[in-house]
Design a protein around this nucleic acid. Structure first.
Length: 645
DNA sequence: TTAGGGTTAG
């Protein structure tokens, strides 16, 4: 048998191939072979074994390889620091950094990025300052890391931006990409665009991807899709990052049809099995009315679902949560017994919901939940009135998983208690919060007070909100509407005047529906649509039919003073709310039996919710309304939210 | 050897 003698060059070549292909199996065999071989000890090879294990996510093995390196050099330290940085362990990385006799620019860059990834601005800037004091050379890696470390502080980002321009670092694509991305994440799309435009020929794939996602995040989906087309036209490579970014554009446009076509393309290319892309798809379907069955199919296609994929599914279910027939029966029974004020019966009967079942499955798979997972879980409990479960999960997040509740978790709990009619408990929770409740907490209490018609609590919450956010129209409108619906016209007028005096403008309510690839938008009492006469006529006829079926209009929702118009006119005004117009147009423009989907930019009005339940029964159609809070799927006279939203 | 880009909540 011929003995093959391996040389260092053989090992070098094969090891580099293993690293670039992330081929752990071959890499490990190579490592065993190297240890047994007579090849002299090589720091180069040892360093690359550290890298291989780090890139394949084996931190302990990587550290082991570092530990067994006979003569570690700066490269060896840099490689193991990068491994700890990747696992978000900057303090250990720093400890290793301190042991390097002569740290080089890569050592600094790696440690700066380690801190940046964990949002630790100060230590990252400290290292940057040291580099300046030592007159060490800097490069694009350094500045990209420093910029990322400044995320959440736009003043710092601007200061570093000045440094970049005056130091000539704006020649690096990575530096501009970091600036572009940070400006966008901070909400400054215009500044991101300026960076993009000034890059001229210096753009790379990352620049385009960042710009697409920036537009998607700022709800400029159409521009994001146009950028994607431009990127392809200019010959840039499309990768997973691009595809996931494009999906957010479809989601922001609520363009389910476009998303479906894009999904077909993803299946052809096989990219749909990538966890990031799949998360984007699930988010799209769950937010645009695609249904959770399709989400489940996408989820099952992914071989190794990651944490975000689980979170996206749980959140999707929480948005689409349907109360089971059993739960609805229980609720109806409670209503019959006159216990309408409280919905805690759901919790008392321990009825499971899909998102909570999925959450338990996630725990069985030993996937550790994060703070975001708990926001979805608690929000699902709030949507379905599961007070006891909500309290249980709120407690275990700290006790079992060591996650400190943040203002968002408290806000879910306030929402949960408030919706269930426990307004005083909700207020007590706000007062006992160790973190500042901010506007989110008070907004949750205001919403719940409105549901339960508790004027006193609503006024308290609204006034807190007006102090915190004087330019936010929501508390003014909610408070004025509550006064108006309870006949307190003077108070309603005072709130409206205050709003006018402060120059606060209400976001006009509108609803839209897509028919034959065209979006039709309606505002209340719309007269602009070409089919508006037919729509009004249809609603008039439908109004008669649903009245016969038992519908009674809720005139409190018309919010017009009694002596201004009579009840008949109020009823007409109610009939012409934007969501009713969109529903009527949808029913007129589609075939019998076809389901329709309407989207509204605000919360659905109480009278519309009731009327559409009747319309679904009379027309025999499935009507889905997606409002800012959740999906309402109306079928045979019932809504999936169980009148609890 | 090190960077910048994607998915989840409110």
């Amino acid at each position: 048998m011929t003995q093959i003698s391996w040389t260092i060059q053989n090992f070098r070549y094969l090891l580099k191939t293993c690293i670039s292909h992330r081929n752990l199996l071959t890499g490990k065999s190579l490592h065993t072979l190297y240890i047994k071989s007579i090849v002299p000890s090589s720091t180069y090879l040892s360093n690359h074994f550290i890298l291989l294990y780090s890139k394949c996510g084996l931190l302990t093995t990587s550290h082991h390889a570092f530990h067994h390196t006979r003569h570690p050099n700066t490269f060896s330290f840099n490689a193991i620091i990068a491994a700890y940085a990747k696992e978000s362990l900057p303090s250990i990385a720093h400890h290793l950094f301190d042991q390097i006799p002569h740290p080089d620019i890569v050592s600094y860059n790696t440690l700066i990025s380690a801190y940046a990834d964990c949002g630790q601005t100060r230590p990252a800037l400290g290292l940057f300052k040291t580099m300046r004091q030592l007159c060490l050379e800097m490069d694009g890696f350094t500045l990209s890391g420093v910029i990322t470390a400044c995320l959440n502080d736009v003043f710092l980002i601007r200061q570093v931006h000045c440094f970049v321009v005056f130091g000539g670092f704006d020649a690096y694509a990575s530096v501009n990409n970091a600036l572009l991305s940070c400006y966008s994440k901070e909400g400054f799309l215009e500044e991101a665009k300026r960076v993009f435009n000034e890059m001229e020929e210096g753009k790379d794939e990352v620049t385009w991807n960042s710009m697409i996602v920036a537009h998607g995040q700022h709800k400029e989906g159409a521009k994001a899709l146009a950028l994607f087309q431009e990127m392809v036209k200019r010959g840039f490579d499309v990768d997973m990052f691009t595809l996931a970014s494009v999906l957010t554009a479809f989601t922001s446009l609520k363009d389910l049809l476009g998303g479906l076509q894009f999904h077909a393309m993803l299946i052809k290319t096989g990219f749909h099995q990538n966890a990031h892309v799949a998360s984007g798809l699930i988010d799209l379907y769950s937010k645009c009315g695609g249904g959770m069955l399709d989400c489940r199919k996408v989820f099952e296609e992914v071989s190794g679902p990651d944490l975000v994929l689980w979170n996206t599914m749980i959140s999707g279910y929480s948005l689409n949560e349907e109360l089971s027939e059993e739960a609805l029966d229980c609720f109806r029974e409670m209503q019959r017994c006159g216990k309408t004020g409280s919905c805690t019966g759901y919790a008392q009967h321990g009825i499971g919901t899909e998102s909570l079942i999925l959450f338990e499955h996630m725990l069985e798979q030993n996937i550790s939940p994060t703070s975001i997972t708990f926001i979805s879980v608690l929000s699902a409990c709030a949507h379905t009135g599961k007070v006891e479960e909500g309290q249980k999960y709120f407690n275990i997040m700290k006790e079992r998983f060591g996650i400190e509740p943040e203002v968002e978790h408290y806000s879910c709990m306030i929402d949960l208690l408030g919706r269930a009619g426990k307004l005083h408990d909700a207020e007590k929770l706000i007062k006992s919060m160790p973190v500042n409740p901010g506007s989110i907490g008070w907004a949750a209490l205001l919403g719940a007070s409105k549901i339960h018609g508790n004027m006193e609590m609503a006024s308290k919450a609204a006034h807190k909100l007006l102090q915190l956010e004087p330019s936010n129209a929501v508390p003014y409108v909610m408070l004025a509407n509550m006064y108006a619906s309870s006949g307190k016209w003077e108070e309603a007028a005072m709130v409206r005047k205050l709003m006018r005096d402060r120059g606060v403008r209400k976001k006009p309510g509108c609803s839209w529906i897509e028919i034959n690839k065209r979006i039709h938008v309606f505002v209340a009492e719309d007269i602009s649509h070409p089919m508006i006469k037919e729509i009004y006529k249809y609603l008039e006829e439908m109004g008669r039919k649903i009245k016969l079926a038992g519908y009674v209009s809720d005139l409190r929702c018309s919010l017009v003073k009694d002596d201004e118009i009579d009840a008949g006119e109020k009823e007409i005004k109610l009939r012409h709310h934007s969501e009713k117009l969109a529903v009527a147009f949808g029913l007129l423009s589609t075939k019998n039996g076809e389901p329709i989907l309407v989207i509204k930019n605000l919360r659905i009005c109480g009278d519309c919710h009731n009327a559409i339940k009747f319309i679904s029964a009379v027309s025999g159609r499935e009507i889905t309304i997606r409002d800012t809070h959740r999906f309402h799927c109306f079928k045979e006279g019932q809504c999936s939210c169980g009148d609890y939203w």
